[in-house]
């Protein structure tokens, strides 16, 4: 049984600068999202439990191949990538179609793992969409995954309760950021990452074409800071502020 981990290359969020409220992505390097590393770690732990390979899938521009080295270093066995500069900025419905096509090319898929939401957009739409396209059962917000033969037991962590669910494999799982602590790759693993097997496809290799964008971005600006930014010098002053605003002595 193989484990598929879907990963997304995102701009290093710490390095994005704002110019006139416009985000500037010039020169900002790409990185793996933190939660994608949790998804990968979940996959690696399942592999240790029940064997098979961990295969990562990703769609994006040519840079993705470099970015995914980190995941291959951390233990993924193979990568299936769609590399196409025209596919650098897909939205959820398009990404889902492309990933589903990639996953169909992989034999003996057991669990398909996603982060619960990407580090930059955090919409969490791609995983469930892939599950629907492939007609697979899904459990989101997982805090635990356990494979027993042909089924898996997954704990879905909701706001006020945990649900323990069982489903037939293959299935789609999206994981929470606190499901595990991602391992640190060794020097040898880092150096060998570039040599691991990769299946690389161009956008035109996908059997079905991508539809147009289902969502377009009209504007994207840093929020206007309407805060008063009054300097407060002492706790006494702070208390008079709280009193004036009606929070103390109500």
């Amino acid at each position: 049984m193989n484990i598929v981990v879907a990963m997304k290359q995102i701009p290093d969020l710490q390095q994005i600068r704002m110019r006139n409220r416009q985000p500037s992505l010039d020169g900002v390097p790409y990185a793996l999202g933190l939660i994608d590393k949790n998804a990968l770690e979940a996959g690696l732990q399942l592999k240790e439990q029940s064997g098979g390979k961990v295969i990562l899938v990703s769609v994006g521009n040519e840079e993705v191949e470099e970015t995914m080295k980190e995941a291959l270093a951390a233990g993924a066995d193979e990568a299936y990538l769609v590399l196409d500069d025209d596919l650098a900025d897909l939205e959820s419905s398009q990404t889902a179609v492309a990933l589903a096509e990639l996953i169909k090319k992989i034999d003996d898929v057991g669990v398909v793992i996603f982060g619960e939401g990407s580090g930059d957009n955090y919409s969490g739409q791609v995983g469930p969409r892939v599950a629907e396209i492939l007609g697979l059962p899904q459990v989101g917000c997982a805090s635990h995954i356990e494979v027993n033969g042909a089924t898996a037991r997954v704990t879905r962590s909701l706001e006020n309760a945990d649900e323990i669910l069982e489903a037939e494999l293959p299935m789609v799982v999206t994981v929470l950021g606190d499901i595990n602590e991602p391992r640190i790759p060794s020097v040898t693993q880092i150096l060998k990452a570039g040599k691991k097997p990769k299946q690389i496809f161009a956008g035109s290799d996908l059997e079905i074409g991508l539809a147009g964008r289902a969502v377009s971005t009209i504007s994207n600006l840093a929020p206007e800071n309407a805060r008063k930014r009054v300097a407060v010098g002492s706790v006494d002053e702070l208390i008079s502020v709280l009193r004036a605003e009606g929070f103390v002595g109500r």
Binding site: E66, K69, E70, A73, I184, P185, S186, V187, I190, L191, A193, G194
Partner: peptide, 18 residues
């Protein structure tokens, strides 16, 4: 290079964590 960056990051991750 990417490998150099990853090795640097690996060492700093270990430092931070352990």
């Amino acid at each position: 290079s990417k490998e150099q960056l990853l090795i640097q990051k690996m060492a700093s991750d270990f430092c931070e964590k352990s």
